[in-house]
Amino acid sequence: MTADHVLRALAAVSAERAEGAVLSVRGLTVRFRLRGGRTVDAVSDADFDLGAGECLALVGESGCGKSVLASALLGLLPGNAETSGTALLAGPEGGAGTDLLAADEKTLARTVRGRRVGLVPQSPAAHLTPVRTVRSHLEETVRALTGTSRRARREAAETAAERAAFPAGHLDRHPHELSGGLAQRAATALALIGDARLLLADEPTTGLDRDLVDRTVDELRRHADEGRALLLITHDLAAAARIADRVAVMYAGRIVEVAPAHRFFGPTGPRHPYARGLLDALPDRAFTPIPGMPPELSDLPEGCAFAPRCPRATVRCGTRPAPTAGVACHHPEQPRA
């Protein structure tokens, strides 16, 4: 089998995936204009598909653009941001899809956020209103999203809490009376009320203990197994390894590698030198940092952004590598023995 065959096979697979994808992102680019004419290329040419029941982990270091990508999908970017590309969200039950990047604020607010895209926030404690109980949060969201009658609302709120494994006995508590894990479940319960088919989890485990991280991501995985598509944005590789089906690695605003999780974390390992370096930095592996620091997003090099830190870089890296078979690199590493 020639390399050509492999490419064609891969293209066919991703085309099939795109067909049934809940979210299909093509050429997503976000750029911020700053005063003084500077521009920051926060996200460049991001392509990925996300199917129902699938969990895609978007990993990378802080400031690499992954949170901006999430905000772009929710239409929550500040005024000085320019976006291009498409992010097609599949319509409900075969209905027309929506391009999240082209939709106006009214459409996003009335039909997308909460209803078709649920957000699991980074710091649940800050996400909840301190003066109201969890029950009142849930009931209000039920009312806003489904317009359920007052009497049925109570029951709907309790069902929502149960779905996120939030104990009914704690429903009448205020956010400050909850432990970190319960606050996270309350926020997840809110994200699930609209029965959104796409869940966006933006660093849902920051600052949590390892046990709690495991429990939180396991619950997210359970929601994916119920047929939702889950985009997990995280810098915690262990969390990604635990639940992801596929891993997308982002570096300096670009997705440099997309790989199946078992290959990425398994003995074969990732093929992009940056992804490999990131894994080698883990304390249960080599624990050695990648030399240097990521480039400024306002001053990206012409070619491969990782070349200055890359042990395999050559003259060819002066031109930007096109993604081939899921890896954007001129000198991808061979699978480990």
Partner: peptide, 14 residues
């Protein structure tokens, strides 16, 4: 290193 990615964590510990 609780807020940091793997590579920065390794660099700071080093």
């Amino acid at each position: 290193t609780a807020m940091l990615d793997a590579s920065t964590t390794a660099a700071l510990v080093a």
